[in-house]
């Protein structure tokens, strides 16, 4: 990755930048809190944190409109917060409480919101890819102009069903944007150790799908690429691939000792490429916000996250009857 960029003249308004700052910070603080609650034994099972990748979902949500859909893998908390789901409901799902989005029955990897058009939360690597294309199939069938953001990682990019889906998405001209969140590691296997392909987005060329690689640590670059993809998709030009070059600071899951990479590598990304620091610099150096302005936002976010944590502890466990509900409609 390149060295830290000098403060550039932002091509975004003050309000936009503040919005991105706030949304990315919410995800980061939320995830830090989730990590803390996991350590306290309040969250169980698998818990995959999104810290480091915030710019991807925040930038793409900035390119979306009402009606657009999104579906992703098990590393899904950031996507939910970015599309406007309530942090209280997300955190309470993590703690397995009735106030969670799935009444405590889904967990970290399985949350949904019909209202926010968030279709999960999928634990089988790559499965969300045809599911996302299917959502786009429905929109095309119904004749609206919605698009579906279908997120998957560099690891899922080696699953066969991804390419089955590319083929049909292009064949049927489906309004789906495939977002490869390339954070460099599929659990503990680096991209270099899993593929000889120079890039993942280029594999779409075999199916005639347009795409590009994007600096996924730069929210403005993400948004710009997202707008381009969305415009093409909405105009009926079929699917589009965005390979977001990003990085996760934490392990694959809470139980990952991350021995497959050096501490220095992580530190270098944090200090030179951090997405939140980038927007912070743009705001401060562009004279669009003061240190105090940002501190006030930090405080507000911290309070919001604490509120979600309190809610997730106070919300009762699902009553035993819930064991037997929602199996059939």
């Amino acid at each position: 990755m390149a060295a830290k960029k000098p403060a550039e003249r932002p091509n975004a308004s003050k309000d936009e930048l503040l919005k991105y700052y706030r949304e990315m910070l919410l995800i980061r603080r939320f995830e830090e809190k989730a990590g803390q609650l996991y350590g306290m034994g309040l969250i169980g099972g698998f818990c995959h944190l999104y810290i480091g990748q915030e710019a991807v979902v925040v930038g793409l949500e900035a390119a979306a409109k009402e009606g657009d859909k999104r579906v992703t893998s098990y590393r899904d908390h950031g996507h939910m917060l970015a599309c406007g789901m309530d942090p209280k409901g997300v955190m309470a799902e993590l703690t397995g409480r009735i106030g969670g989005y799935s009444k405590g029955k889904g967990g970290s990897m399985h949350m949904f919101s019909k209202e926010k058009h968030f279709y999960g939360g999928h634990g089988i690597v790559g499965a969300q890819v045809p599911l996302g294309a299917g959502l786009a199939f429905a929109d095309k069938y119904l004749g609206n102009d919605n698009v579906t953001f279908t997120y998957f990682g560099d690891g899922a990019a080696n699953q066969g069903q991804v390419y089955e889906t590319y083929n049909m998405a292009q064949l049927w001209n489906l309004p789906v944007i495939f977002v490869i969140e390339n954070n460099g590691y599929a659990m503990g296997t680096s991209v270099k150790r899993s593929t000889k392909s120079p890039s993942l987005w280029e594999r779409g060329a075999a199916y005639g799908i347009k795409g590009e690689a994007v600096d996924g640590m730069d929210v403005l670059a993400v948004k710009a690429a997202g707008e381009k993809a969305v415009a093409a998709c909405r105009a009926g030009e079929g699917p589009y691939i965005l390979e977001m070059m990003t990085y996760r600071y934490r392990g694959h899951s809470m139980s990952d000792p991350a021995k497959y990479r050096t501490r220095e590598e992580v530190e270098k990304m944090r200090s030179e490429k951090d997405a939140i620091e980038h927007v912070r610099d743009l705001l401060l150096q562009g004279g669009l916000a003061s240190d105090d302005d940002l501190k006030a936002i930090d405080k507000e976010i911290k309070a919001q996250v604490n509120e979600s944590a309190e809610f997730s502890k106070d919300s009762p466990e699902p009553p035993v009857e819930e064991l037997w509900t929602d199996i059939y409609a």
Partner: peptide
């Protein structure tokens, strides 16, 4: 594998 997944997604999409 692919078209079954697409069909499930389509069922969620209405």
């Amino acid at each position: 594998h692919g078209f079954a997944g697409i069909a499930v997604g389509a069922s969620w999409g209405g």
